[in-house]
Write a protein that binds this DNA or RNA. Structure first.
Lengths: 357, 357
DNA sequence: CCGCCTGATGACAACGTTATCACACATTCT
DNA sequence: AGAATGTGTGATAACGTTGTCATCAGGCGG
C-alpha cells in the first residue's frame, strides 16, 4: 500500500519507486527497473496516499478543517443560569471531536438585552466580532437568544450561522431548538398522572412558550389553574426562593409546581429546605436538566433537554450549510425526556422530611 | 501556522500544544499553560493541517456503504399526486450520490389508508417488508403518511427509520417536514399583498394544517373568509375542477384562490381554461411546486417545497442515527419559498385571456 | 590518462500531526 | 517512611510522500 512496500518487493529504493510512479514522462529510469516497479505497483493495486502527498507538497488538503466561532449571549437575568455554560462546554467538545477547531468564543449580554439593542451599539458589536480586515472563520454558532436586529447585522457579516436555543424560533437562521410548549405539557402531565390537580407555575409569564404549554396542558387535563398558583418571575434562583415563600404563605397552595427551568426549582427547593417546619412540601418538576439537578435535595425530577444532541445537530446543520448541502432556512427540533428523580411524589404524599436537612 | 510555531511562541513543547488543541476534554493540561496555548493559537489564527492529521490517523479510513430501503405510501386519493414520485426520484438520486445503496423500494397504499389499518393486516405487511429470516438493510426512509399503528410495527422491526412528509408530525420517528400552516400563510399573505380581499380555499378542511394556516392568515389580515369561498374536497385534480365550476357559479366568487396543493390548482386552471367565456379568472396560488406547475397555462405561482433539501436532510438524519449521532426523536423543518409565475395578478386585474387557449 | 559531464540510483531529511514512552513531581495508601 | 498511584510534561518515533543531496558508473573531450 506504500512506496516502501513496493521498494521492498522490487529491491530498489523508495526514492526510485517514487520517482518512477510520480513522473508522468517515461524518461527518468532504467527501462528494466521501471517495468519491475510498475508491475509491482499494479500487482498490489497501489494508490498514492493523498494526505501524505498534500502534506509534502503543501497543497490544498482533501478535507478542509473548519474553524468555527461561538457567540454565547444571555440576558442579564440569565447570567446565573448554568444551562448555557453546559451547552458551551459540550459544543466545544463536539467541535473538537468532529475535527473542527474552535475559533473565537465571545460571551456577551448586549446581543440579547433588548434595552441595549440600539442599532449603533449593535453595529459596533457586530463590527467587533467581525472587523473588516480580520480573516473570517468558516461559521458561527450562537447559543442563546439574540434580538432580531442583532441577528440581521450578524447575518450580513457571516452568512454561515446557526443558533441553539432552549426554545422559540427566530425564523431568520438555521436553528436547533426544543418545543417549550411540549416540554411544559410533559411536565404538567406527569404531575397530573401522580394525581395532582392543584398545579402551580413558576417562571416568566410573558412571551414564554413553556407558560403557554403549562396552560394548554392544564386545559387538556380539564384543570383550571388558580390565578394565585401562578408566580410570574424572572427565571433565576432568587425567583424560585421568592416563589416558595409566596406559595407557603397561601391558604390553599398548589401540591405540585412546575418551574419553567431548573434554576428556579433549585432556588425553590433550597427555600423549601429552610422552611420545612411549615410542612409545606409540594412536588416540584422543572425543565432543562442542568448538572446541579442531580445534586439537589431532593434530587430534581425534570424534563431533560438533550444538550449533547443539540450541539451535535447545530454543528451538523452548520457544516451542511458551509458545504452547500442546503440553502433555505432549516430548523431541527429535539425532544425533552422526563427524568424521574425524587422531587415529585404521589398527590397527598408529602416529600420525605429527611431530604430537607 | 503549525504546532511548532505555537510551541516556540509559548515556550512549551510541541506535544503539549498538540495535546491541548486536539483533546476534546478540558482536562489534559495545566489551566495556565492551556490558556497561553489557546491564546497563541487564536492569535496566529491557527488551523490544523488536515493532511498531516489524516496522514497520521487516517490510515484506516474505510467508509462503510449503507443499504437503505424506501417505503412510499399514499392514501388512495393521493395516487395521482406526482409530488410523492418526485420526492422518490430525488431520494434515490441523493442516496446514490451519497454513496449509499438503494435497497428495496416499496410502493404501498395499505400503510396510510385508515380503513385498511387492522392490526393483522398491518402486521402482515410489516412482515412482508421485513421477513424474519431476511438480512436487514441499514435503514428505512418513509415517504408519505403512515398510520400510527403501522409506524409502531415498523419501528419494532427496523429502528433506524426516518419519514419525509409534506407536513404534519407523527412524533414517533425522526422526520423531515414542512410547516403546512406557515406555507398557507405565506400564500394567503401574497394574495393580500396583491390587493385581494376575497380569498377562497380549496382542499381538505379536516385535519389539514394548510387549512388552519389559511384561516389564521385571513384573521391576521383582518379578513373573514366567506363560507361560500371554502371548498372542501379531496386533494386531487377532479377536486380542482369541481371547485372551479362551483366558484364560477357563485354570484360573488373569490378573486384569489389558495389551493392546498398543486394538483388541485392544476385541475382548477384547466377548468378555468375551458370556462374562459364566463370571464371569471381568479388569481390562483397553491403549494408544493410539482414539475407540472411550470407547464400550466398560466404558469402556476406556488409555494415551493425544497424537495431536494428534504430528501437530503432525511438521509442526513438517518445516517446520523445509524452511526449513533443522536438517539432521541428529532425533527427537521424546512421552509417553503414563494415562486412567482403567472397565475396571480393584482386584484381587479383579470388574468390575460391569451393564457387560456 | 585525467577531469568533466550525464544519467541512474540510494540515503536522508523534511512536511505537521499524533502516539508512545519516559521522566519528574505531587498525592495517596500500606 | 516507602510504595503505589496519578498528574503534567517533553523527547522521540512514526505516518507516506517528495525534494535535496551524494554516490557511482560510464562516456566524452582535453
Amino acid at each position: 500500500m506504500s512506496l516502501k512496500k513496493i521498494a521492498q518487493m522490487t529491491g530498489v529504493s523508495v526514492s526510485t519507486v517514487g520517482r518512477i510512479l510520480s513522473d508522468p514522462n517515461h524518461k527518468c529510469a532504467n527501462e528494466e527497473v521501471r517495468k519491475k516497479v510498475t508491475d509491482a505497483a499494479r500487482e498490489i493495486n497501489y494508490i498514492p496516499n493523498a494526505s501524505a502527498r498534500a502534506l509534502k507538497t503543501g497543497a490544498k488538503s482533501e478535507e478542509k478543517i473548519y474553524r468555527i466561532d461561538i457567540l454565547l449571549t444571555r440576558a442579564s437575568h440569565e447570567m446565573s443560569d448554568p444551562f448555557y455554560d453546559e451547552l458551551l462546554m459540550l459544543l466545544e467538545k463536539e467541535l473538537r471531536s468532529s475535527g473542527c477547531i474552535v475559533g473565537n468564543v465571545w460571551h456577551k449580554a448586549e446581543f440579547s438585552d433588548e434595552k441595549l439593542s440600539r442599532t449603533d451599539r449593535l453595529g459596533g458589536l457586530a463590527d467587533e466580532l467581525y472587523p473588516a480586515d480580520m480573516p473570517h472563520s468558516d461559521g458561527l454558532i450562537i447559543i442563546g437568544k439574540v434580538t432580531l436586529k442583532a441577528l440581521k447585522l450578524l447575518k450580513a457579516k457571516e452568512k454561515n450561522l446557526v443558533s441553539i436555543n432552549r426554545n422559540s424560533t427566530n425564523c431568520e437562521t438555521d436553528e436547533v431548538l426544543c418545543d417549550g410548549s411540549r416540554i411544559a405539557r410533559t411536565a404538567v402531565n406527569y404531575l397530573t398522572k401522580l394525581g395532582h390537580t392543584k398545579i402551580g407555575y413558576v417562571g416568566d409569564c410573558h412571551n414564554e412558550s413553556r407558560f403557554t404549554g403549562y396552560q394548554t396542558a392544564m386545559m387538556n387535563n380539564r384543570l383550571t389553574p388558580d390565578i394565585d398558583h401562578i408566580f410570574d418571575t424572572l427565571p433565576n434562583e432568587e425567583g424560585g426562593i421568592a416563589a416558595m415563600e409566596y406559595f407557603a404563605s397561601l391558604d390553599d397552595p398548589p401540591t405540585g409546581i412546575y418551574c419553567a427551568n431548573d434554576i428556579l426549582a433549585v432556588g425553590l427547593l433550597s427555600a423549601m429546605g429552610r422552611r420545612r417546619s411549615r410542612g409545606y412540601m409540594p412536588s416540584v418538576i422543572s425543565s432543562d436538566d442542568i448538572e446541579t439537578a442531580q445534586y439537589t435535595k431532593p434530587m430534581l425530577t425534570t424534563i431533560s433537554l438533550p444538550k449533547t444532541e443539540m450541539v451535535h445537530f447545530a454543528l451538523m446543520l452548520l457544516l451542511d450549510r458551509i458545504r452547500g448541502g442546503h440553502r433555505t432556512v432549516s430548523r431541527i427540533e429535539v425532544e425533552g425526556t422526563l427524568v424521574i428523580r425524587e422531587s415529585c411524589r404521589q398527590a397527598g404524599v408529602l416529600n420525605e422530611p429527611e431530604y430537607y436537612i
